[in-house]
Amino acid sequence: MSRIQHLAVNDEGFVFDPTTGESFTVNSTGLFILNKLKEGLTETEIEKQLTETFDEVPEELQRDMSDFLQQLKSMGIV
């Protein structure tokens, strides 16, 4: 199981990684993506759901997504 499955995530966007003891905060959009990744959804599926759930999703959504995934990678979460 990848590290992301272990993350403790609360509704306020507080994220705790019990394997490393590190903690993070995410904003609402980030929280949504993180939860969907935990559920095992693909990038395209998440993008679709984001557009359905949030208002005013910008054209550069894909770029934001990949930027966020990169952040997660650099933190060793995915």
Binding site: F16, S23, F24, T25, V26, L50, F54, D67, F68
Partner: peptide, 25 residues
């Protein structure tokens, strides 16, 4: 809900570790 660019921030571990074993507390 209004879209914001997704961000995640690592919380400063120095401060956390100094004041208790678990960052949650």
């Amino acid at each position: 809900m209004k879209y914001e660019k997704p961000v995640i921030t690592k919380l400063q571990s120095g401060m956390m570790n100094k004041f208790g074993s678990s960052p949650l507390y």
